[in-house]
Design a protein around this nucleic acid. Structure first.
Length: 187
DNA sequence: AAAACGATCTACT
DNA sequence: GTAGATCGTTTTG
């Protein structure tokens, strides 16, 4: 699970909408660990809102927060409600479209933050439950980029289980949201 | 039907 | 660094 989160770092999120393809390199993620993690949306059991997390792996879990949306990849077998929150990507392609959607020209503000990147990639709740392995609309792609140096820290914005270091981010990337200080070892 | 709640963002010192 | 805005969704009466 943690290894899945770490493996997502430096992979690409590809988002295809009518006539436009936007791509971002993942530079920051957080892991949420089902039953053992009081900060996980699924901690208190299955509901309509978190049902995607309880489903099969490889699905997109989109949830609303503070009038915005954030996206996760479901990672574990059916019934184990773990997911990886994608917190920030480095814009790689489709930048002009991302600027339009975000309403800013500032490169660093395009996709630095979980709700910002959803806005830049035009992801909302209609994509909740989408199959990321389908290779359409939105999916994850690898590339030949060598594994970056990775840092760990507590997760951002959670009010419980703050001692867990389940935030992973690319060392020295300017596209990481929140504090870039780290509390632990690299990979 | 009303109120409360955020895994946040923006603008401003 | 932080106060205030924000609004879709869930929870409560």
């Amino acid at each position: 699970m943690v290894d899945v989160a770490q493996d997502l770092l430096s992979k690409l999120v590809v988002r295809r909408t009518a006539g436009v393809t936007c791509v971002g390199r993942i530079v920051e993620v957080e892991a949420y660990l089902a039953a053992h993690d009081s900060a996980c949306h699924a901690y208190r059991g299955r509901t309509r809102k978190n049902r995607t997390m309880f489903g099969s792996p490889g699905k997109l879990y989109v949830y609303p927060i503070h009038a915005r949306y954030c996206m996760n990849a479901v990672t574990q077998p059916v019934g184990v409600a773990s997911a990886v929150l994608i917190r920030a990507v480095e814009p790689v392609a489709g930048l002009s479209t991302m600027r339009e959607r975000r309403g800013t020209d500032r490169l660093l503000d395009l996709a630095r933050g979980p709700a910002r990147l959803c806005q830049a990639l035009q992801v909302d709740r209609r994509l909740d439950g989408w199959d990321l392995t389908r290779g359409a609309r939105i999916w994850i792609a690898g590339d030949a980029t060598p594994s970056p140096r990775m840092r760990l820290s507590p997760r951002i914005g959670v009010t419980s289980n703050q001692s867990a270091r389940l935030r992973f981010f690319v060392d020295r990337s300017p596209y990481v949201s929140g504090p870039r200080r780290f509390h632990s070892q690299d990979r």
